[in-house]
Design a binder for these strands. Structure first.
Lengths: 214, 214
DNA sequence: GGCTAAGCTGTTGTTCAACAATCCTCAATA
DNA sequence: TATTGAGGATTGTTGAACAACAGCTTAGCC
């Protein structure tokens, strides 16, 4: 494992944020975190700059770094970008390697299994895997990492919202529909379905945010 | 003015890289740069981590940071991502604000003027502005910054290649065609033209890279 | 009471010097 | 020729120190 201390700390903090141990809005104190993780302030600051990459955290001058609190604009923007990346994947589906297409099918199936078990947390993560697999059809490393960042941000959005079931239940069947269309080579219809899917999901989230938060 | 020293240094270095003052492959020595820019090693390192964001620079453990040397795979990948982002813009063109659409037209016109003057460096940058304006039609900050990063990387590619004229001359007329299609509301044809444009441009670059570099 | 302004406090921003860990070079060896 | 092993140079990390700043508190004023 050829990784510097700063990189290790960065991934540790990233994990904490994504798992919700550091809720949105939390300030990451240099002194406290440095003491807990047993690294110097300088290395911790380097880790912070690395974390900045994936928008999970923001930096306010002379005030420190905070776990980001995504707003309405962030959500709609994230979904615009998702639409761009995932439809790029769908459009490249015809020439995609079999392994990449299988990953799409597998994610849908696993989401359905998890739903049968009532494990909505696993449904959520399988859903994200499904969409990442869609974007991955484009066979582009840059698209993959961009997509990973978007989904990590989205996980942040979900942390400040209730009832994962409400968000994923209605989309299970649409995921399967989308996968079928791809399997049957109906790429144009798949792209249209994807567009509808994303606008609906985005609206569901933003509506809920308006309810919960003023 | 609310910028830390590390941020200032980062933008200074970014400017040097984009202007070609620090050619691809250059190692950024902490000691030398720190002495020249009159900052401590620690702040310089923070600036390096910030620079890492936009892929202009890469970090090898225990060896330092180097100006990236984009390879063939990078170029094809950059163009895949460009296709995703720019076609997202084209597909959103119908609902785009007038100001965004004007920016597209303006960039094409300025590229043509520069070509008339024989100023191929300005043609190049107007061309990049044109494509950035295309992506900007999507009205998404995340798409904008992603696009900026891609174009900065692309500038890096051009630095290790000869004859800017060869790369931009053939595409002036296609830029104008694309702009016309958009203006006339022929979005489907515009998207097709864009796809062709990008694959051709990508091929031209990779072919040249194969000639110049083994 | 309500307001502004000065001071206080805790945090981040930046520097410095030192040491540990690692890579590269180059010569000596088999 | 290929390998090994010091030696030197650079990065990785630390701890301490001080400066600079944001936010809060308090004192003074109307």
């Amino acid at each position: 494992m050829a990784r510097s201390t700063a990189q290790r700390i960065a991934t540790e903090l990233r994990a904490r944020v994504e798992r919700g141990a550091l809720p949105p809005g939390t300030r990451l104190s240099e002194e406290a975190l440095g003491r807990e993780l047993d690294v110097s302030r300088n290395t911790l600051r380097e880790a912070f700059r690395l974390l900045l990459h994936d928008q999970l955290v923001e930096h306010r001058l002379h005030r420190g770094v905070f776990v980001r609190v995504p707003g309405l604009h962030d959500v709609t923007d994230i979904y615009r970008m998702r639409a761009a990346l995932e439809s790029a994947g769908v459009r490249a589906a015809a020439e995609a390697k079999p392994g990449l297409r299988e990953a799409v099918t597998r994610a849908v199936t696993e989401a359905e299994w998890a739903a049968d078990d009532g494990d909505w947390s696993e449904v959520a993560s399988a859903d994200l895997r499904f969409h990442r697999a869609l974007a991955a059809l484009a066979a582009s490393p840059r698209i993959d990492t961009a997509m990973d960042r978007l989904l990590a941000e989205l996980r942040l959005v979900f942390h400040s919202m209730p009832s994962p079931r409400r968000f994923h239940q209605p989309f299970l069947v649409r995921n399967r529909l989308l996968e079928r269309l791809l399997e049957q080579g109906e790429y144009a219809r798949a792209e249209a379905e994807l567009a509808g899917y994303l606008t609906d999901a985005c609206r569901l989230i933003t509506d809920t945010m308006r309810e919960v938060h003023p």
